[in-house]
Simulated scan of single mutants.
Amino acid sequence: MPRDNSITLGALTDLLGGTLVGDPEAVIHGVCSLDEQAPDAIAFSNASTPRTLQTGLDGLQARALLVRDDVDTATLNTTANLVRVPEPLPAMVRLVPLFYSEFEVERVVSERADIHPTAEIGRDVHVGAFCAIAEHAVVGDGAVLYPGVVLYPHARVGAGSVLHSGVTIRERCVIGEDSVIQNGAVIGSDGFGYYPSPEGHQTVPQVGVALLSDRVDVGANTCVDRATLGTTPISRGVKIDNLAQIGHNVSIGDHAIVCGDVAIGGSTKVGKGAVLAGASSYADHLEIADGARFTGRAAAGHVRKYEKGDYTGYPAQPIGQWKREQVMIRKLPKLLKRLRALEESVASRP
């Protein structure tokens, strides 16, 4: 929610530990983006060269701009107020609470929630209307369950976690502390396991669990399947975007990033700090090393192990190799033309 707040540019610069080029008495009433500027707000630019920064300054309507302190601003053609900081985006994040407050819910348990007598509900929680909390489920202190959240038997939600409307946590699955699960996500749905028989496909029972550690964020309508046996572990600090599919027995290491529309096949291991960009896909039983990064729409699976590095393409391969192949592909029409000319020359000889 917006706050009716203001701060002088001088005080703002001191708060950020930056350097001001401009008017310290200018008053800032908010933050904004360069795409949607406000005349009394401060925007930010991650431009790393004077030329690209000048592009952002041309037509600037915001009252001030956060810029990188390693960019030479002396050559810029501008009279704008500039606040120079090491990293503009983290600086902007620090300013947001000055002008916006998070929506606060009343810490009450709705009379319209369906809570089993054996469920354990912690202190200072919010349980919204039409939540369903089954037998022996646990809701930790300070957790927030918005209307329509469903906890199956023995599900656990850690202290301080927030589950938005429409979230389902299946039986015996665990959400760690200070995690955020966005609308419509399902944690612990059955893994996709079948085997053929003369009578048709037979279901492999999925009797494991999904286990999310602390400070894990899961996007809207994402599914994290329960394990066939054992666990589907999502480690501390992992961030998963909307519409992702995490297969049964997948493991994801600390602080990895899984972007929107990613699909990860069963039993694949994703290392710490790995980045899986949007709409990329991963076959089952892969090993992705710590720090490996995949571009959008990359398709991994033609090899089983991916070392640390940057990958792209279909099938996914090291970016350097992909670039070399793209250069060769673009040369193929000319090479084919030369080959045909050579064949005709040879054929015409007596």
Rank of each mutant, 00 (worst) to 15 (best):
L212S: 05
N221E: 12
E135F: 11
I246C: 04
T75C: 02
R324S: 13
G176N: 06
D214Q: 04
A244F: 04
Y146A: 03
V105R: 14
H164E: 11
A274C: 12
K337N: 01
D14V: 01
E111P: 00
G320Y: 00
D254N: 13
F130W: 10
G247K: 15
C223P: 00
R226P: 02
G10T: 05
Y282W: 06
G309S: 08
T52R: 12
F99G: 01
A91N: 04
K334H: 13
E25S: 15
D72C: 09
P333I: 10
V149C: 06
I257G: 02
R304N: 11
R3T: 02
D290N: 14
D178L: 12
L9Y: 01
L76N: 06
P350F: 09
V157M: 11
V138D: 09
C223A: 15
P50D: 01
F99I: 01
I181N: 02
T49L: 12
S235T: 01
D190R: 05
M328N: 13
V218H: 05
N221M: 13
S267L: 10
V216R: 07
S197D: 14
V21D: 12
S280T: 03
G128A: 10
V138L: 12
K269A: 01
S280L: 02
G237K: 04
E343L: 07
A300F: 12
V150M: 00
R172F: 07
I319T: 15
I187T: 08
A74C: 06
L243Q: 15
P117S: 10
V186K: 02
P97H: 02
E307Q: 11
V71L: 10
H302T: 15
N5H: 14
R338I: 07
Y194A: 04
V127D: 00
H126F: 14
D40P: 04
L229Q: 03
V83T: 05
G18N: 04
M328C: 10
T228R: 11
S189K: 09
E344S: 15
T203Y: 05
A316P: 09
V67S: 03
I246R: 02
G22Q: 03
E102S: 08
A185R: 10
W322I: 02
V186F: 08
V270E: 11
D69I: 04
D4W: 00
G160W: 10
L229W: 08
C173M: 08
I252V: 09
H255P: 00
Q61N: 11
T55H: 09
L151M: 13
S165T: 14
V85G: 01
L15V: 03
A155P: 12
N81K: 11
A227W: 09
G191S: 03
Q61Y: 06
